[in-house]
Structure formats: C-alpha cells, structure tokens
C-alpha cells in the first residue's frame, strides 16, 4: 500500500474527495516549483502531481505548454524532476510524477521507477502510454513498488475501461472531456457517466481531471468522484502573478477555494 492509498483513504474517512494539484517541475524555476508545491500542500492539496516537462506535449493546451517551455528553457531534466519530487515528498504529501512516455523510456524504464521510489515518490501518471505498450513499465513499477496510473476518456468503451482500469494501481485518472488540458467554465456531464462506468469495472478510486478550475466545479465533481485534479488553473495563477511571492499567495488562495469545494457536500 502506497501513499496514494493512504491519501484517498484519509479523504474518504472525512467523507470528501481528495484534492490533487499539478505543477510542472522547473516552473517558474526549480526552487520556485518546490516552493509553490509546498504551498499547495500546506494549504490543503492532498496529492501532488509533479509534471515532467516535455518538448511535445500533445495532450496539453497552451497554458501547460507555456509552463513546460519555461521549465525546459531553465534546463529542467528528469533527474531534476526526481530532485523536486524528493523535496516535495519530504512534506509527507503523496507525490506522483506526470510524464509523457519518451523521457521515461530514454532515462531507462527501470532506472526511472527506481529513482522515483528512492526519491519518495509514489507513482507515475502516463498520458500517452496505454496498457498495451506498458509491459516493461508494469514490471518496473511492480518491482519498485510505485503506482501506475493510466487515463480513461469519455470515448473509452466498457471493454476498454476494464482493460485500462485493471492495469492501473493507486487510482484511475478519468479525463472529464474529449480534449486537452486547460481551464473550462464548465465540466461536461460526460465525466459523471464515465466515473460510474469505471466503478462498474474497478474498485480503485477514480479521480477526474481536465478543465477543473473553481471551487464550484470541484464541489460538483466531488459529489461523484474520489479525487479532483487541478493543473492549468494553478499555472494560470503563477503566469499572472507579478512575483513568486504573489504567485504563492495566489496559489494558496485557489487551493483554499478548491479544498472548500471538495468538502462542500459534507458541510
């Protein structure tokens, strides 16, 4: 049982969904990303996703692309990401990496899984890796005791949901809409029916991401999902802030709103 399992259990015991926050390592700088992620954890994020910046993020909208470009220009590397993970995981928060597949393969599948485990990370979300291509990854994650999180989408058939969910450990990542990352004013009804279809196929927690940016949306999703994932909205806050201090304050403010959102139905 990993940190992820504990984080979801704790939230469930409190009768709420877990809040999952994403930020790329190295954005706006390496130290800056550690500071901001620690601020997220301190103000109510339960699970952290550290993004590994990649040159060709074909599932990401313009906001995350810009953050990844910034991080790469600063010289962020996979080893640097593991360093960020280590510093963040030291807070005790369950810490995941979200990475496109090529940088992991290039680093060495076993080396990456082992390095992450040593850094105190608890799993990896792989947006462009499907279970069919994940033979070596499955062995490596099993070997090093870290979770593997694959994505499901509204277009996934029931048979496909069974295949993907049974390949996941930790939780199942449900993409709320057919689209790329980025804040949306409303999260489609497709997410709720997707979550209920995943529950038919798996007993793992299900977290919903893509397009979530407000406390109201978080509350809405928390009513049916085990986790609410927010990424681009945090990056937007950082991009709009005049300084790192202002960014930190703004990130804390958003976390507070979202954390209240995931608790709203019990209040």
């Amino acid at each position: 049982m990993t940190g992820l399992h504990d984080a979801f259990s704790r939230a469930r015991d409190e009768g709420r969904a877990a809040l999952i926050g994403y930020l790329p390592a190295g954005f706006p700088t390496s130290d800056g990303s550690v500071l901001l992620i620690k601020a997220m954890v301190a103000s109510g994020v339960d699970i952290v996703e550290v993004g590994l910046p990649y040159s060709d993020p074909l599932m990401d909208g313009p906001v995350i692309q810009e953050a990844a470009d910034t991080a790469l220009r600063q010289g962020m590397t996979p080893a640097g990401v593991l360093d960020v993970v280590e510093r963040v995981a030291a807070t005790g928060a369950a810490t995941l990496v979200m990475s496109y597949w090529n940088p992991v393969e290039r680093f060495g599948v076993d080396e990456f899984a082992g390095g992450l485990a040593r850094a105190g990370g608890c799993g990896v979300i792989t947006p462009d890796l499907t279970p069919e291509e994940a033979g070596e990854w499955t062995r490596a994650t099993y070997e090093h005791g870290i979770d593997r999180v694959f994505l499901v989408a509204p277009s996934s058939t029931d048979a496909r949901l069974r295949t993907v969910a049974s390949a996941c450990t930790g939780f199942v990542y449900a993409a709320s809409t057919m689209g790329v990352t980025g804040a949306r004013t409303s999260v489609s009804g497709a997410a709720e029916s997707l979550v209920s279809r995943v529950r038919e196929a798996s007993s793992l927690p299900v977290a919903v991401g893509l397009g979530v940016s407000s406390g109201d949306q978080a509350a809405q999703i928390a009513a049916y999902a085990d986790g609410v994932i927010v990424g681009s909205a945090f990056i937007r806050r950082v991009l709009d802030a005049p300084s790192l201090q202002a960014a930190e304050a703004s990130v804390r403010e958003l976390v507070a709103e979202l954390a209240a959102g995931v608790r709203r139905r019990t209040e």
Binding site: L58, M59, W101, P127, D128, L129, T130, E132, E133, F150, L151, V152, A153, P154, S155, S156, T157, R160, V164, A175, M178, G179
Partner: peptide
C-alpha cells in the same frame, strides 16, 4: 510502431 496516444483517441 505501436500506439502512444491519449486514451481518448483509442476508440477512433
């Protein structure tokens, strides 16, 4: 070869 794409494209 193979398929390294977001799951949303698998059905298509």
């Amino acid at each position: 070869g193979g398929r390294f794409v977001p799951e949303a494209l698998t059905a298509a």
